[in-house]
Design a protein around this nucleic acid. Sequence first.
DNA 1: CTGAAAGCGCTAACAT
DNA 2: ATGTTAGCGCTTTCAG
Lengths: 336, 336
Amino acid sequence: MVKIKDIAERCGLSIASVSKALHGESDLNQKTAEYIRSVAKEMGYVPNASARLLKTKRSYNIGVLFVDETSSGLEHEYFSSILNSIKDEAEKNGYDITFISHHFGSDYLTFYEHAKYRNVDGVIIASVDFRDPEVIRLVESEIPTVTIDYEFNNVASVISDNVQGVRDIVNYLVNMGHEKIAFITGEDTSVTQKRVASFYKTCEERNISVKDEYVKKGRYHIPKVSGEATRELLTLEDKPTVIMYPDDYSLLGGITEIEKHGLRIPDDISIVGYDGIKLSRLIRPIITTYVQNSTEIGVRATKKLVDLIENPKTTIPDRTLVIGGLQEGSTVKKIR
Amino acid sequence: MVKIKDIAERCGLSIASVSKALHGESDLNQKTAEYIRSVAKEMGYVPNASARLLKTKRSYNIGVLFVDETSSGLEHEYFSSILNSIKDEAEKNGYDITFISHHFGSDYLTFYEHAKYRNVDGVIIASVDFRDPEVIRLVESEIPTVTIDYEFNNVASVISDNVQGVRDIVNYLVNMGHEKIAFITGEDTSVTQKRVASFYKTCEERNISVKDEYVKKGRYHIPKVSGEATRELLTLEDKPTVIMYPDDYSLLGGITEIEKHGLRIPDDISIVGYDGIKLSRLIRPIITTYVQNSTEIGVRATKKLVDLIENPKTTIPDRTLVIGGLQEGSTVKKIR
DNA sequence: CTGAAAGCGCTAACAT
DNA sequence: ATGTTAGCGCTTTCAG
């Protein structure tokens, strides 16, 4: 491995000068600096991030906390898409990303410990149980943090506008003539709470009464659970004319169940998803769903974090709202 | 940040003793060691991976090279699933993973340079253009490497058995009475070559003649391209009775096209996918496809790499074949 | 403009 | 059984 010292020797200069040249310091002779740089390049010099870190306390490494009980966080398209854009944006800014975990290897590490162990400059947190004490510990630590789809007081966050999303969906449904709207929700998280509140509020605004049995608690990303909830809804005396699902993936479980009952979509029953995964446009019928702007969310979160890291004084840990848009597929029937 | 020196001072011992205690060295008094450890814990000590690396030359960091022109590598379920299992298995062994990229930040880095910059102990390469000189440079470097779905001479590899996969599919189709078998392939990669060779070979074994126009070159993971190829196949005078697709995702493009022609699956035409993504079991009809064991592939690749890193002398850079299995969905009609 | 030197946190060979 | 010390590769202050 070629190091600064090697370059210095070859150039007959000191390591200090080489270091300066490599950083484009001004108080060095132009010619000398260029010469050094050319030699460095010729020798195939690559800086050592760890050595640099030891001195500068900057790792140019962003920690990403993406936990998921089912350990399929990466396979959830909404999150894998966010992750992908975090990665791209981070690289554009010269950062790498490291997954923060419990690192089973030698010892158990808490999230905070893992972050320290790898000296990450900041952390982006998404898709976790935000009530987990370890998560809270991390958020409250000295490490700059950005949360996605959750707000802590005084912590920067990037939020997909779930209130607007559900509002747009309900308004669309009502405009299509639906009055019996069922809603299968995800498990009880802050996102779910916002969606449910927005659901009731918008229904009220539109003078739609919501039967208790039309709102069912399901699970995100588990088609089977949504399928079961769908079955219950379909066996009601007074069936809904449309079912809203917690996400597009879950909706697929609903479709299977609906077809089992010999019903056609959307003629016999309408359905709406959430997320707008790519697949929602690939299968037929195209799913009517609310498309979350996952790429934008990842980009914004990363930009905010880099700002927080590089300009701590002047960066405000505020909330960024990212809005999506309704995708009008063909799973909702116009009733009137 | 609490460091070894702090612990040493608090204990009234030397930093060497603390370091030894933390590593469970034997030549230290049991009591002393335990005392040191308890103090370390109490003080919230977390080792600094970078400082350690500087001395030991071991980063406990695995580089993952997952490039993809469409920059959607992470959104391709086969790969995201492999990545997920790499991550899990790496963590079990005390390693973190770092994505190797061109790191646009400060300067352009080649893959090899990026790997050096982060001092990764080894690299897993998948889903890239293996003819890229930069990839070859990395593989030929001193850094331990494992490739997925591609073989370099004398480099460890983990391969999904594409030959067996296509053989199983073709045999199944022939057993179902199909003789007019069309095959839309992916772009020309070594995986594609193996599949195509296996396709012709198995057809020959089963005495099935293959018309030239039945084999179409498509693209992996791009439904639109498969849709177009499907259209061409459907407009042939002598239509195939079944179409094999490069992957499940692409197959969806085929379905759309088939439905446009007013044909039913599998009554009018049968279709077969590849990969066995979770979705293939969620949509109706369930897709008949070859399920690649992506989790196993990731685990094997990681175990092999860790072996290569930790026991370089005794680990052979061989090839590991991972087999999958046919998923009999309901997209293939029994003809005879 | 260039160089010497200290030190980041840690390990490990070598004392004691 | 415990301590001293020399670096690992790099940045950065301070001298020259």
